[in-house]
Design a protein around this nucleic acid. Structure first.
Length: 578
RNA sequence: GCGCCCGUAGCUCAGCUGGAUAGAGCAUCGGACUUCGAAUCCGCAGGUCGGGCGUUCGAAUCGCCCCGGGCGCACCA
């Protein structure tokens, strides 16, 4: 893993202070938070330095503290065992926060890390002719969050929806159409029905397999009947998919199916053959990977038809040639780990040094009632149904808690919050954990959940609206940080300051849950501060003292803007009211 | 059989580039709204970090071996 300096200027100053005092490299010094705020704002452990300098960590920490001289960002350093605990200059940190968040286009997430880099992210990538089901949401939402995250950090992002629009599956559906006719008007539901029926028939009727393969061959060979039907299926599917994507607020930079690589595949195969990497095994063209302790990678079936791996190979080359990526991510379920491992090895053997920049970003599967989901078994929940249910429940809640909203506005809010809750639920924990879908659980909106974050945002914005302040940028310069004397205010400020480093960590490890978890903590810090006002009116943002009110409003606005940016990184909306 | 992933409080999960007393939410119990939004906040209680051995000054975190669950492993994607 790459190590770099913290993005927060204050955290960076802490790392550099230790590095300067001890004569070690600041890169790699982890800046953490002391377990008790009374100890300090930032902590740097002297463990790694102790190994290189062959001295006791505690002695090194004392040396750092003794030689520390206050600067514009940090005011003190104290040794506590092996740690050096730093205190930031509060006025400086507040001023920095306000300057970076309250100006138009301001953000605490710097665009430097990704400068000059391009990342391709393959996400969602459903098969056409099957409805988008709940399990599709994982790739869609994780990939979209990773795209937003990288974009926020300054990367050029190419979000790719690599549609599964090619393969024997379509041969089977075409064969089913030939046997039983095309259900009109044709919908995804109709296609899927034929597919399931065909699979079922194939269990007893052995001619089905050959029939399906033959139809796919016809499709590949350009047979016009097959092509026309296939084009129709593709168009109808895309139209239905777009409805769901619009609902989720998910966008792509490139929608390019497997079929787009039809012409490239012979070229890729010829290249591999020329390089002597392929062999024929049982009539199929394969790359033997036994020396890597992997099963062979199948590139062409005995009947001449291409496979998944062939198309992904061609797509990988296309992406490198088209975009020159510095990183290429594939967000798919963990069951495909072997496929991507094979893909990388084959590309490497073909002499593509960029193959090592390809990363599979796996996630655990979604179970339904304890069983694996799948169109083949019919064990699915439609994504639209889940979204609709979430929105209906939120709509009912809003009708109760905020009866002044117009029905139209309420529906908007229900959409933002309902969809947000589903998105957040899918980003909250580590990708690789399997999840068992339970509607009641996904729709429980108390505590650590999407609505908690959006509620905090609505509150922060509501306070700002009531204040009558229209020029937040002016708050940045007029706010007197000395008026922010509460510990709760300071803890909130420290949390805000950390967002850049959290976002960078999330992007680097491809773990959006790092940001999700961070935002929960950020909102908890805000809610704790906000709640002081319900006991004591002088502690409210909108208190009687003008100068104090201005300072608190600046903090409130900084929070609102940062949270909105954080939610946007996860692909969630930040409603003004709810 | 081989390979990969997961196993932390009753439940769902953070914490895992080794480090300061293992943290949240839900559920239970007890508090806090006549005034900035209670979809909130505060508190009580709850843990042999699946088990064992090892490395280390120090292991939930690293290594090895078990146990439990899941997923892959030739013409599906």
């Amino acid at each position: 893993m790459l190590l770099h300096l913290p993005l927060s200027p204050f955290r960076r100053a802490a790392a550099e202070a230790v590095a300067a005092a001890l004569g070690v490299d600041a890169v790699g010094l982890a800046v953490s938070t002391p377990p008790d705020p009374a100890l300090g704002d930032f902590a740097v452990g002297c463990f790694s330095a102790s190994r290189t300098l062959r001295a006791a960590p505690a002695a090194l920490a004392s040396r750092v503290a003794a030689t520390f001289s206050p600067g514009p960002l940090l005011e003190s350093a104290a040794a506590a065992g092996p740690y050096v605990n730093f205190r930031a200059r509060r006025a400086a940190l507040y001023a920095d926060l306000f300057a970076r968040t309250l100006t138009p286009g301001g953000t605490l997430v710097p665009a430097a890390p990704g400068a000059g880099q391009t990342v391709c992210i393959d996400y969602s990538s459903p098969n056409i002719a099957k409805p988008l089901s709940y399990h599709h949401i994982r790739s869609t939402v994780i990939g979209h969050a990773l795209a937003n995250l990288h974009r926020a950090l300054g990367f050029r992002v190419v979000g790719i929806n690599h549609l599964g629009d090619w393969g024997t599956t379509f041969g089977m559906i075409l064969a089913a159409f030939a046997r039983w006719g095309v259900p009109e008007p044709l919908t995804i539901g109709g296609m899927a029905e034929r597919y399931v029926a065909f699979r079922k028939a194939a269990e007893t009727d052995t001619s089905c397999g050959d029939d399906g393969r033959a139809w796919f061959k016809r499709l590949e060979d350009g047979d016009e009947t097959a092509r026309a039907l296939w084009r129709r299926m593709r168009e109808i599917s895309l139209t239905e998919f777009d409805e769901v994507y619009a609902r989720l607020g998910v966008v792509f930079d490139e929608v390019r199916g497997e079929s787009a690589y039809e012409a490239d595949m012979p070229v890729v195969l010829a290249d591999l053959e020329r390089k002597g990497l392929t062999s024929i095994s049982d009539g199929a063209l394969v790359v033997d990977l036994a020396d890597c302790n992997m099963p062979p990678c199948l590139l062409r079936k005995a009947d001449g038809a291409t496979l998944y791996a062939t198309r992904d190979l061609a797509a990988a080359v296309y992406r490198q040639e088209q975009y020159g990526f510095t990183r290429s991510l594939y967000v798919t379920d963990s069951g495909q780990a072997l496929h991507f491992a094979q893909l990388k090895v084959v590309l490497e053997r073909a002499g593509h040094e960029w193959a090592k920049r390809i990363t599979h970003v796996p996630f655990g599967l979604v179970r339904l009632g304890g069983k694996k989901t799948g169109a083949r078994t019919g064990n699915v929940v439609l994504l639209l149904d889940v979204l609709g249910e979430a929105e209906a429940q939120i709509d009912a809640t809003v009708a109760r808690t905020n009866p002044d909203l117009t029905p139209e506005r309420r529906r908007e809010v229900a959409r933002d919050v309902g969809v947000g809750a589903i998105i957040f639920a899918n980003l909250q924990s580590q990708r690789e954990k399997d999840v068992d879908f339970e509607l009641e659980k996904v729709l429980s909106f108390d505590g650590d959940a999407g609505p908690y974050l959006q509620y905090a945002h609505a509150r922060a914005r509501s306070v700002l609206r009531r204040s009558g302040v229209t020029d937040v940028a002016a708050l940045a310069s007029s706010a007197d940080a000395a008026r922010l004397a509460r510990d709760e205010e300071w803890q909130l400020a420290l949390k805000l300051d950390a967002i850049g480093d959290e976002a960078a960590r999330a992007a680097e490890s491809c773990e959006p849950h790092i940001v999700a978890h961070y935002l929960l903590e950020l909102c908890a810090a805000y809610s704790r501060w906000y709640a002081l006002g319900s006991q004591d009116a002088t502690l409210r943002v909108l208190c009687a003292d003008d100068a104090t009110r201005a300072a608190r409003l600046a903090l409130d606005a900084a929070f609102g803007a940062t949270l909105a940016g954080g939610l946007a990184m996860l692909g969630m909306r930040a409603p003004e009211e709810m």
